Computed example of a mutant assay.
Amino acid sequence: MNESTISLPWLVIRQDDNGNRYRVGRYATRAEAQRIADGLDATGHKQLYWVERIGQHAQSADGTRN
């Protein structure tokens, strides 16, 4: 881990209609990342957005492990 991983451990992830996943941004707190994900979800696009912590196993939007 480097210094940026420690200070910005929360990711917002987007998954498009084809199942491709992209990191939208990194944030210092879960609350901040969730606020961003919720705001993006509210735009009405069909992509899925969720929050995960660096180092955790990836989870799909329905909460199941990949």
Rank of each mutant, 00 (worst) to 15 (best):
M1I: 05
N2M: 11
N2W: 07
N2D: 13
N2L: 11
E3D: 11
E3F: 07
E3T: 09
E3A: 10
S4Q: 10
S4N: 08
T5F: 14
T5L: 14
T5E: 09
I6C: 01
S7D: 00
L8E: 04
P9F: 00
W10C: 00
W10L: 02
V12P: 01
V12H: 03
I13C: 04
I13N: 03
R14V: 01
R14G: 00
Q15K: 09
Q15H: 07
D16Q: 03
D16K: 07
D17K: 11
D17T: 12
D17I: 12
D17A: 14
N18L: 13
N18A: 13
G19F: 10
N20C: 11
R21P: 09
R21N: 10
Y22H: 09
Y22L: 11
Y22V: 07
Y22M: 09
R23C: 05
R23S: 07
V24S: 03
G25L: 00
R26L: 09
Y27W: 03
Y27G: 00
Y27E: 03
Y27Q: 04
Y27N: 01
Y27F: 15
Y27V: 00
T29V: 05
R30L: 07
R30Q: 10
A31K: 05
E32K: 04
E32T: 02
A33R: 04
A33F: 00
Q34H: 08
I36E: 08
I36D: 08
I36C: 00
A37E: 06
A37Y: 05
D38K: 04
G39R: 13
G39M: 08
G39I: 10
L40H: 01
D41E: 12
D41R: 11
A42I: 01
T43A: 05
H45D: 13
H45M: 09
K46R: 14
K46F: 15
Q47Y: 14
L48K: 08
Y49Q: 01
Y49N: 02
W50C: 01
W50H: 07
W50N: 00
V51D: 06
V51E: 06
V51W: 02
V51T: 12
V51I: 06
E52K: 11
R53Y: 14
I54Y: 11
I54A: 04
I54H: 08
Q56D: 14
Q56G: 08
Q56T: 02
H57V: 03
H57N: 12
H57E: 13
H57S: 10
A58Q: 15
Q59E: 10
Q59I: 14
Q59P: 06
S60P: 02
S60H: 15
D62M: 09
D62K: 08
G63T: 00
G63L: 01
T64H: 15
R65D: 14
N66S: 13
N66M: 15
